[in-house]
């Protein structure tokens, strides 16, 4: 199935300028080597997927690759549960297409081992746990952006991740402990 997808796309790559059927991925700057199968690198592993262009990175991770640690809370970028790292930066995977992230290094909760995880447990920085992968990925991204210097900065910078159980103060403590 996967192979078929690639070859179908290869055939079409050269005809990018002409009208091609919906569902096709075409590389407009079609060079001879243009491969158009959707190839994602997730947690260091390559996955070749047969997905339509309309498939979001989030749905590709969850439904195609089976990495369900990344959660869908709103599918509109409004809750942060789907936060992953792309090339080390935190983003919302529901607002990007899988095909747009070819060639990037994608990191999901399944691919991290970070002191924040222990700190989240120690400070009880979650209850139901549904927003937690997104919180942790967001916090890892935040730490990479530069150490947040105060509780207030953590609060502001973590405001893209909703937590309905209300673990907010504990999340701040967990992050502050790790950020030093």
């Amino acid at each position: 199935m996967v192979d078929e997808g690639i070859s179908r796309r290869r055939v079409l790559a050269g005809t990018a300028a002409a009208g091609v059927a919906a569902g096709m991925t075409v590389n407009a700057s079609a060079t001879a080597s243009a491969s158009t199968g959707v190839e994602l690198t997730v947690n260091g592993e390559k996955h070749v997927l047969d997905v339509e262009p309309r498939v979001t990175l989030l749905d590709a991770l969850r439904e195609q690759i089976g990495l369900t640690g990344t959660k869908k809370g709103c599918d509109r970028g409004e809750c942060g549960a789907c936060t992953v790292l792309v090339d080390g930066r935190r983003i919302k995977s529901c607002l990007t297409l899988a095909v747009m992230r070819e060639g990037a290094e994608i990191t999901t909760i399944e691919g991290v081992r970070h002191p924040l995880q222990e700190a989240f447990i120690r400070h009880d920085a979650f209850q139901c746990g549904f927003c937690t992968p997104g919180q942790i990925m967001s916090a890892i991204g935040l730490l990479a952006e530069g150490e947040p210097g105060s509780d207030a900065q953590v609060r502001e910078q973590m405001s893209g991740n909703l937590c309905r159980c209300g673990a907010y103060p504990n999340i701040v403590r967990a992050i502050r402990e790790v950020s030093g």
Binding site: R62, G66, L67, T68, G69, T70, K71, K72, T108, I109, E110, Q117, E118, F120, I121, R122, D124, F126, G129, F130, T132, P133, I136
Partner: peptide, 21 residues
């Protein structure tokens, strides 16, 4: 006591209703 379900929740291993394959 730390939550006993903590490790599953901070690693993405906890399977919620929509996570079943």
């Amino acid at each position: 006591l730390d939550r006993v379900d903590g490790p599953a929740k901070v690693t993405g291993a906890a399977k919620y209703a929509a996570d079943q394959h």
